[in-house]
Nucleic acid binder design. Structure first.
Length: 466
RNA sequence: GGCCCGUUCGUCUAUCGGUUAGGACACCAGGUUUUCAACCUGGGAAGAGGGGUUCAACUCCCCUACGGGCUGCCA
């Protein structure tokens, strides 16, 4: 019986959840959740110069919005620094690591000279084989004693078998001169301690996998399954950056994309399963597998994102959609709906949701239900005076509950407007008459027709009039 | 410079040696329509280039070109 699958998402706290990171998290989540495994979250905050608590919060908020739940407590890599140091000490004791007293200046000089020669050799510490008796009383870093010959082979679920000549890999630093661990050591120790079985991450880490394999070997730990997925690129094919617009997940939230659609789109970006395009997360979990991940970087396509979101809007559960809409309003600092608006939207949402792709669009379609714009008797003359067009009819908003027009008066106004605009009035007259008979229809007739279609409107108005 | 990865319609992709190279988004045309949208129908659109291997290559191998990543006491 196979051991439980454990994946993790391990972002560094940069101040926001990068859309690419969100996808990495999503893939890890899908893989674990689809197999009854665990999905863990760890913040790679060993670089204290950059760390802020707010940056971590931004990541948690992003994941929460996207609907990616993690198991257990969020692990702070920084909090585990003593454990990392202990492992470094073990490596020292075993001779798989050594103390290096080379200063950063010395290394910089070495690199500058190498570059001047036109070559770019890896730094080889003179302390690698120095006797302890020659060690000065000075700060030192702990370096991995990496093999210099042979090769390190990565079995990657996405990239296949990748070989690295060991002469290309340097003796990476595991412990800085101030005693804090570097990323390279910390990831390995943490992934091992957290029992991570599958490391699914961006392929910018592919080279690192080789170095990390050396640490696993040095410690005698089992190497996890690797899966290095290509990064997301901007529409122009270049690495996604702020230049392309939205890179932070919260920006997508602010643009009003529903989380389910976002998940679907991100899943399909760089991953495919036959012709599957629109699916729920449950379905994605069923289908998702590492071998469906493409090997080439994928470009972000906002048009398709929007289209995918449209499908999810339409298939969403009414109550859930309303709930998410409320969250959207809160997240974007907009006022919450009033009880009246809420009530109207409850009734309108089944007809509205299939016509919107984002929450702002949904709100736009729902204007008839959200805004109270009773016409006044003065509008009658306005209507008569303006020969312009259909726009008159469009802007004519009738709050039948609020207006004391007689059936005859109202019909006359609309008739006049229609005549001026040269519109065949027949079709409109029928539902209007039905509505007037009932006198119970709140939304404007015209906007409602826009929102739910003419035939639907007629049917509903007929209902209302009974 | 070195090492590594990649390259099918504009975009995301299917294909895992034999297909009229399929789907989706986008686009164009038509339909529906009291705007927009949505919806329906149809259409154009692809294997980077060059060598091999093979009866047969988008699928396998090599080279070139182009793109990307790594090459930190960042992660």
């Amino acid at each position: 019986m196979a051991a439980q699958i454990v994946t993790r998402f391990a972002p560094s706290p940069t101040g926001y959840l990068h859309i690419g990171g969100a996808r990495t998290a999503l893939f890890n989540w899908l893989y674990a959740r689809g197999r009854g495994g665990k999905f863990l979250l760890r913040i790679e905050d060993t670089d204290r110069d950059r760390y802020t608590p707010a940056a971590t919060d931004a990541i948690l908020r992003g994941l929460t919005w996207l609907g990616l739940d993690w198991d257990g407590e969020v692990v702070s890599q920084f909090d585990r620094r003593e454990r990392h140091a202990a492992v470094a000490a073990q490596m020292l004791a075993r001779g798989t690591a050594y103390k290096c007293f080379s200063t950063q200046q010395e290394i910089a000089v070495f690199r500058a000279e190498a570059e001047a020669r036109g070559s770019y050799a890896v730094f080889q510490s003179p302390w690698r084989d120095a006797a302890a008796s020659t060690h000065p009383d000075a700060p030192y870093v702990v370096r991995m004693r990496a093999p210099r010959t042979g090769e390190t082979v990565i079995q990657d679920q996405v990239q296949g078998t990748v070989r690295f000549g060991n002469d290309q890999l340097d003796d990476m630093i595991c412990l800085r001169s101030d005693g804090t661990p570097t990323y390279m050591l910390a990831v390995v120790v943490d992934d091992h301690d957290m029992a991570v079985t599958h490391v699914i991450r961006g392929d910018d880490h592919l080279n690192n996998a080789a170095r990390q394999t050396m640490i696993y070997d040095a410690m005698g730990w089992p190497v996890p399954v690797w899966a290095h997925m290509p990064l997301i690129h901007g529409p122009d094919g270049k690495k996604l950056s702020k230049r392309h617009g939205a890179v932070g997940l919260e920006e997508y939230q602010a643009m009003g994309y529903p989380a389910a659609g976002m998940r679907n789109y991100l899943t399909r970006l760089g991953w495919a399963h036959l012709d599957a395009e629109i699916f729920t997360s449950q379905e994605a979990m069923q289908m998702f597998d590492l071998d469906g991940i493409g090997r080439a970087p994928a470009r972000l396509d906002f048009k398709k994102l929007e289209n995918t979101c449209g499908h999810h809007m339409a298939m969403a559960d009414d109550a859930a959609l309303l709930h998410e809409l409320a969250q959207f309003l809160r997240a974007t600092g907009q006022p919450a709906l009033t009880a009246i608006q809420q009530d109207r939207l409850d009734h309108a949402i089944p007809f509205l949701k299939s016509n919107a792709k984002t929450f702002p669009q949904l709100l736009e379609k729902a204007r008839f239900a959200l805004e109270c714009r009773p016409i006044t008797r003065d509008d009658a003359s306005h209507v008569a005076l303006d020969p312009a067009s259909r726009s008159i009819l469009k802007s004519l908003t009738l709050q039948l509950q609020n207006v004391q027009w007689s059936k005859v008066e109202l019909e006359a106004i609309l008739n006049a407007a229609a005549a001026e605009a040269g519109i065949a009035f027949g079709k409109l007259a029928q539902p209007l008459r039905a509505a007037l008979a009932g006198r119970t229809v709140a939304p404007s007739v015209y906007d409602m027709m826009l929102a739910i279609g003419r035939d639907e409107t007629i049917a509903r108005l007929a209902d209302a009039s009974q």
